[in-house]
Design a protein around this nucleic acid. Structure first.
Lengths: 105, 105
DNA sequence: TGTCATCATGTCAGATTCGACATATAGTTA
DNA sequence: TAACTATATGTCGAATCTGACATGATGACA
């Protein structure tokens, strides 16, 4: 029977796991990061349908570079900026809540 | 017929409206504030059932005073800290999403 | 009464996040 | 080819938010 990739890598000295495991994140830290990434993805989705990054930036009195960072999940972007940007695309709190809830059971 | 409080106040020179109107907040700004306040209220609710402010503070590597400010809706508390605190009470992203969605249609 | 536990509030130096700007990359159109 | 538009990335000084600490208020219990 063929070994899995995980087994083969571990046999050769590697430990394989999720990014969260590698970075030794607690479940809470992982959840926060996933919330932010989900918002990033949804922000891009919504924004692209409606306007350019520069236009969104103006609406939230920010800059194009910051919007780009928000959409690419750059670590320097706060949850607050992500939510402000979502609201500026016309997203309702209900829609934002749904994104944060994610695919979760 | 009895005048409403609003009519009486306006007749005497007052303009009466919501806090948002008084502060001249855009709908987006109002929505963000309501999201933060909803999280504050829910945080207190959940935290009280499980632990003291000092215990929660330790879990998120913060301080009792900051938790107190989070629960009282102090303006200096970020959305991120509110969400981290919620997660530390055991709230799932789904539950957090529900709080953010609020009573909204 | 005094002590203890819990929470609220103010301050502050340090850390984080901010908007702005420069610049690079990529796609489009002429 | 050049010019233009949209986006990505790095830097930086300023603004915001941080944890820590001190202290006050309140209630419970001896």
């Amino acid at each position: 029977m063929k070994k899995t990739k995980r087994e083969r890598l571990e046999a050769s000295g590697w430990k394989v796991g999720t990014v969260a495991e590698f970075l030794e994140l607690t479940p809470e830290e992982s959840a926060l990061i996933e919330i932010k990434l989900a918002l990033s993805r949804e922000l891009r989705e919504r924004r692209q349908k409606r306007m350019t990054q520069a236009q969104l930036a103006e609406k939230i009195q920010s800059s194009q570079s910051r919007v780009a960072k928000a959409e690419t999940g750059h670590g320097s972007v706060s949850l607050e900026l992500l939510v402000r940007a979502m609201l500026a695309t016309g997203a309702s709190p209900k829609e934002i809540g749904k994104v944060i809830a994610g695919g979760q059971k």
